[in-house]
Nucleic acid binder design. Sequence first.
DNA 1: TTGAAAGCGATACCAC
DNA 2: GTGGTATCGCTTTCAA
Lengths: 331, 331
Amino acid sequence: MAKVTLKEIARRAGVTANTVSRALNNRGGISKETQRRILKIAHEMNYIPDRIASSLRSMKSNLIGVMVPNVSTANWADILRGVEDCAYENGFQILLSNSQEERAREKAILEQFRSLRVQGLILMPSFESQELIRTIAGLPTPCVLINRRYMGYEIPFVMPDNVHGIRQAVAHLVNRGHERIGFVNGHPGSMTSQIRYNAFTESMRESGIDLAGCPAIMCKGSCASATEAARKLLEEHPQVTALMCFSDLIAFGAYKAIQEGGRKIPGDIAVVGFDDVDLATIVSPPLTTVHIPRYDMGKTAMRMLLKAMAGEKIEPLGQFMETRLVVRESA
Amino acid sequence: MAKVTLKEIARRAGVTANTVSRALNNRGGISKETQRRILKIAHEMNYIPDRIASSLRSMKSNLIGVMVPNVSTANWADILRGVEDCAYENGFQILLSNSQEERAREKAILEQFRSLRVQGLILMPSFESQELIRTIAGLPTPCVLINRRYMGYEIPFVMPDNVHGIRQAVAHLVNRGHERIGFVNGHPGSMTSQIRYNAFTESMRESGIDLAGCPAIMCKGSCASATEAARKLLEEHPQVTALMCFSDLIAFGAYKAIQEGGRKIPGDIAVVGFDDVDLATIVSPPLTTVHIPRYDMGKTAMRMLLKAMAGEKIEPLGQFMETRLVVRESA
DNA sequence: TTGAAAGCGATACCAC
DNA sequence: GTGGTATCGCTTTCAA
């Protein structure tokens, strides 16, 4: 069974390929009657348009390149779904690539995207690299960043409102009477770590809490490293009654450090996380945490991209997605 | 800055586009000297090949269509990474689409893939639909299924060795002296539920255990529904000393049902899961479960697909990925 | 409203 | 080893 092309249909319909194209794309300049006839024939022949050919001529690929650092990280999957749903609704298809957080691979991926003439990009670059930033900023293709922000460049971005999220969490702890709150931070290299930690100290100050009694510690971001960090923090600062954690994963790590000593959550130490991953409801006790609307973040990013692709100016440049404190039992 | 094309490079190099193409693709039939000169010029001009044009002429898109039911499900993300890594290594790019488990969307996605001339497909179709199966089986494009198997069709597939996995789990429980083991199954509609349940009864019989004392119950697959199911099972069958669960998620649901009554895991009731998701190490007590090599599954699927795309016959048709019992503290 | 012709950017194929 | 030309399947453009 040979491939059905416009020409084939044209021959059968007794018109030219041109006319068939007009009919199929509902582009007007054609009589209703002819169009109906052509559509019928096309359907009968089980025609599937060749988007490669179409792209070549029209310069529109209807492809969106999405680069994520590591598909497995729970967070990305939800965001991805938001992106994909929105893309699908608007007739775009997703090209997904996993950078593995490797510089060389990120570069190669961007080239491949370009090579396939993607019309837009959604990127979650891993670390900040001036070279990569310049490359991205110089791209002729519209682009939206997720969870990242390049100061000094006009690249639209979407991220959770980290500051507000932390503020909500701290307010909750303070309301419950905590005054000695430890902060278990994530990876030192991450910009988000800095943002959240700054928001933490800021919120504490606003609440009139003495930061002297509120130690902070960093870890590598993994659950195990968090256990170790929390253990150390609690040993060195026994006065602490609550832990604010950079992420849910880190909170889970802290759980272990707390519970191994027979201490109770939240009785002895209260814990608050950040992200609201699925497991937050599953652990024991269920984790009080700051919810990030991941799916909506993805959708929002794609919507911004569509706007940018339509040539509209993105105003404001950054979308800070609203967070929500989900109070469960750990604090 | 206009687009750099072969022709441009050719003009500058004083050769034809044809020759440039040969040089860039290292296709031979060209002198080392000319090739070097052309490559240099191409690089200077910052040439990026147009894969759309190349695809059109060569009939090779270097695109692989991947359809998943729901990108958010933790499992898929790992598999996806395996697929993507392998694809990347072999010069292929992933088109990702999320079917949302909707029939119509699955059909639309397959058409879009075809329209983009994907050279291969990796599908994780949601439910069994005879129509979809026939469509897939009739596709001119090589295809590999993940976690699904269509009896009576010659479609290669990859899935965990469910039977062996369950057998390992049951053997472990029996070794620890359990004789009254309950089975908390997943969604009734899922083929995997049947497979695992059959494997369960089979293993029990082999171990010489009386199935009469070993009740089974189904749930909707969610954590909450599992809590309810486990609660019911334990109430109606107080003799049970261990629960074999269809998945880790279901095991977590069972945890709640067990612990809410003040019962201890594994002291009062032992629990074994299936999947080995990240949280298995995080919950308390850490979950003993059957590990599925998800990343490898993805890689294997892609490798099979590459073979199929190369025209090789896939023998055997199905790859059953080796499972491994990970003994932690819940059983 | 329709047709004819050109061309998107690359590769295949055949000459030389 | 290199060049010329046709062509992939479609859309654009202009003419009728």
